[in-house]
Design a protein around this nucleic acid. Structure first.
Lengths: 348, 348
DNA sequence: TATTAGCACTCTATTGGGGCGAGTGCTAAC
DNA sequence: GTTAGCACTCGCCCCAATAGAGTGCTAATA
């Protein structure tokens, strides 16, 4: 469904105005604030037309127009298609401090805060899932008795560990041997490869280290699974500032939703399939039951692989233009920072 | 300042009533609901007296009484002193599922959720700080080049690691030697002891491993520091259910406060000096700037050492009786669970 | 002397009406 | 096709009136 050029302009103006003021837009306001060279009466006609087509709606007879979800959709599709020319990055972003977390978790938490501050919405970051990430090192540390600590180190510097119990008693010497053996076999492989290789190994050399091998395999499975800990939400209280959430009931629903991090994880993961920025407007997202919310999400990479998702959740009436820039910028920033880490890790 | 027996009873009744209904308590209601054998007029006189002494107040002339912070304080002091007879534990608690997290972090998150669910307030748990905890093992893992991963393992099974860069190149063999050497020296010591010992060692044998030793010392410092990650807040949205926070502005303040985990950490740590349950009513706590909030906190132990704090933050008008029980129960539960872990760790 | 009944008084919350203003939709003129 | 004009709608705010809850005081009572 395409619109006349003039109608398109009016739609954009209405949405712009509504986004910045939050008040329903009447024909007079529209006429005064934007220079269409048209009278309020004509604008009224156009708006009536836009309403008929489903882009605008009426809270009540004697009020101005507000955008429908469909209206927002049209508006944003227009924004994104023309946003290749986003070289004039918002000054606010440029002078924002960059992220400086040393450990990955810290970095994620900072990023979510960063998103929130610049977008005035809640910032959400899903920590890297590195199924494609390269494992750099596997180390076995014998603790006491048959307790063994398995340490996985990824190329980005993430360290994950898992405590296991072995049936057999294995000396640290043997463990070290096994460790360096696996290192030779596995280094620079991705986790799925590592796991495939482990299975192969188990079949090849049945007699030696099978117990350890099995446990390692199991641990690698668990380490790969993502949990609530991988969801970082920053500045959720930012959202409360928008009058949309002045309603107490809505607020409660919102924070309940934020507490269920597992659901949020699924939601964001599912939302982003292709690369690039995605915007979900209001009811478009069936998994987020809080009414009147939009999401702007993107994904970030380590090297060439998409490993995580980040974005912003805010009221449907948000500053999309700016938010899209912020999300895009943050995704690229995070990709770069993680890339540097990777580089630094491989150089040595 | 002590009160006549009768006045005490009336005060308690007023507070009880106010806590359960949230409405200012008038003389008529009081007379009907509680069986004092006194007329409303007499109760009015008593209440006027209690107000004069600062235990009750008046929202306005023609309203019933509500407790002041001082009134709550009196009420709670009475509760706690008699609460040794808390053998009739609330049925709700008993049939609550126990905690089953396998790793310490999981356990803490669960505990905060547990507190929230049972208290209808926000549950807060500060993860174990184990300055007194026994270090069980220190391991050095050479990664690549001069990168060395130092792993600290505590008796409760917490694993913390720190990546360091060394000036000198040290082989894994040397590292292993150093590791087992330190293990012999340090095992079963507490972290402060470990650190003191490290300094001594550095002075004794200046020539060997000084670089490594220094880095280890530095790492042990950093590992001991607590960060935001150690604060777990569960069910903050529970608090929104109490009408006290129907005010949007208050809500926002509340969630802003919850987001500043670092402040919260300090607040709770500072609050609990002695063992046992502490209750902070309304303005009694200068560090929590959200008005109308109370905290009920306790601490939990690992073995004989107090290692962490947990509690509940809710509206001043909360069900203290029940909340105190819940916090007490949770603290003991967590102590027991951590104790079991410790035992399990030492048995091997 | 402590308690109680009675009563006037105070203050809040609610309800309903009136007026204001913003904005529309329609019609007729340009 | 555009515009001016106008009647009409409807939410919002303000105000006054009212009901109701609860107090404080006084005088009577046991």
């Amino acid at each position: 469904m395409d619109l006349e050029e003039r109608n398109k302009k009016v739609l954009q103006a209405v949405i712009d105005s509504y986004i910045s003021t939050g008040a329903p837009v009447g024909s007079n306001v529209l006429c005064k604030r934007y220079d269409f060279g048209l009278s309020p009466a004509t604008l009224r006609n156009i708006m009536a037309e836009l309403e008929e087509k489903g882009f605008l709606s009426h809270p009540h007879t004697s009020a101005g127009r507000i955008p429908t979800d469909q209206g927002y959709r049209y508006y944003i599709d227009g924004l994104i298609s023309t946003s290749n020319e986003v070289d004039e990055i918002d000054g606010q972003i440029r002078q924002a401090p960059t992220l400086q977390g040393s450990d990955v978790k810290e970095l994620m938490a900072e990023a979510s805060q960063f998103l929130a501050t610049l977008s005035h919405c809640a910032g959400v970051v899903i920590a890297p899932n590195e199924p494609e990430g390269q494992y750099k090192h596997i180390e076995f540390v014998r603790l006491r008795g048959r307790e063994v600590l398995i340490i996985f180190v990824t190329a980005t510097g993430t360290v994950q560990n898992k405590l296991i119990d072995l049936d057999e008693r294995i000396s640290q010497h043997e463990l070290s041997y096994f460790s360096s053996y696996l290192d030779d076999e596995l280094e620079q492989r991705t986790l799925p490869e590592v796991r495939r290789r482990l299975v192969e190994q188990m079949q090849e050399q049945k007699q030696v280290f099978t117990g350890l091998m099995e446990e390692t395999y199991r641990a690698s499975q668990e380490v790969q699974g993502r949990d609530k800990e991988t969801v970082f939400i920053g500045g959720a209280s930012q959202m409360l500032e928008s009058p949309e959430f002045a309603n107490v009931e809505k607020m409660r629903a919102l924070f309940k939703a934020f507490e269920d991090k597992y659901k949020l994880l699924k939601l964001l993961d599912r939302s982003v399939t292709a690369e690039g920025i995605k915007v979900f407007i209001g009811s478009e997202n069936p998994y987020f039951e809080v009414q009147g919310c939009s999401m702007v999400v993107s994904n970030y990479r380590v090297g060439a692989n998409v490993v995580g998702t980040l974005g912003v959740i805010g009221p449907t009436r948000m500053q999309y233009k700016q938010v899209i820039q912020v999300v895009d910028y943050t995704a690229k920033l995070l990709s770069r920072l993680l890339g540097e880490r990777l580089q630094k890790g491989l150089d040595r």
